[in-house]
């Protein structure tokens, strides 16, 4: 018996854009499958909207697309959306509106099977938005799309987010989450590694990349200075990680006073990708 998701708990609040981040097979889709009632859980519990509504009633107030867009291939976009309206028990007047939003209005009479993958994915988003959901769940919405398609989807997501809809976005693409989300939940092998704001996760003091002819002096200076933690030397490029705030001006001045002249000084912050790798690596040790 394999446990896909283990002791995972988190809460989503209105108005934020959440990213669920994790490598392939880390349990993102399983987690969403459970709350969307298509995967049976062995243990544990979940609730929608403070637990006052049954899951399938709650899902009518939710919009969700999972992995590949699933529609009836022999029906047109419009017919498919009419069916979704019937299931969600909402009026059909929104259909044109939402097709317009995703740029498919002129193709609404075409059969679903004639659509490209990008168009299918956009139709799926239109379908998920039909009921003006309180929360929109997107599982790998840009998977398998070309750059143009990815850009279109992200623009749509941003538009929807700007209208105040809560969005839960599962992805293994870090820059996607970084660009779109305000909060992030990081999973590995079904366990939660981090949950919180994207800014909070990036809130380290950053690091300096330094180059000089006085390598030995610089290294000993950095090791004796309490502001620095780890120091790496790769072919003369010295990377020094900060343990407390220190700006580049001050460092430059301090080094010059100590007779060390720099040929290169760059202050950087870790990207989400580096943070993610640090987090997932720490946990596996």
């Amino acid at each position: 018996m394999l446990t896909a998701v283990k002791n995972l708990s988190f809460t989503i609040e209105k108005g934020n854009v959440y990213g669920i981040l994790g490598p392939n097979g880390s349990g993102k889709s399983t987690t969403l499958g459970i709350v969307l009632n298509v995967v049976n859980r062995t243990q544990g519990d979940f609730s929608w909207f403070d637990g006052h509504t049954s899951t399938h009633e709650a899902l009518k107030k939710v919009g969700a697309i999972i992995e590949r867009p699933n529609f009836y291939p022999y029906m047109t976009a419009e017919q498919n959306l009419k069916l979704v309206c019937k299931i969600k028990q909402v009026s059909q007047e929104n259909i044109d509106n939402k097709l317009e939003l995703v740029g498919l209005l002129d193709r609404k009479k075409s059969k679903f099977k004639t659509y490209s993958l990008g168009m299918k994915q956009r139709l799926a988003i239109a379908s998920a938005l039909l009921n003006d959901p309180e929360i929109l769940i997107l599982d790998e919405p840009t998977n398998g799309l070309d750059p143009q398609g990815i850009h279109q989807i992200r623009e749509i997501i941003k538009t929807v987010a700007s209208q105040g809809t809560t969005i839960l976005l599962a992805s293994h693409l870090l820059d996607e989450v970084e660009k779109v989300c305000s909060h992030v939940i990081i999973l590995r092998k079904g366990e939660k590694l981090y949950a919180g704001s994207v800014d909070g996760m990036l809130a380290s003091h950053g690091f300096f990349e330094l180059r000089t002819t006085h390598t030995e002096e610089l290294l000993s200076f950095l090791k004796n200075n309490s502001s620095f933690g780890e120091v790496k030397n790769e072919n003369g490029l010295i990377t020094a990680f900060l343990t407390e705030a220190l700006d580049a001006d001050t460092l430059n001045k301090m080094l010059f006073e100590n007779g060390i002249v720099l040929s290169q000084l760059v202050k950087r912050k870790e990207s989400l990708e580096e943070q993610f790798l640090i987090l997932t690596k720490n946990q596996s040790n």
């Binding site: 298509v38 009836y72 379908s127």
Partner: peptide, 15 residues
């Protein structure tokens, strides 16, 4: 085969 059953359930139809 179209996986539409999954989508139907996600859209709020109970089993």
């Amino acid at each position: 085969s179209n996986k539409t059953i999954k989508q139907n359930l996600i859209d709020g139809l109970s089993k």
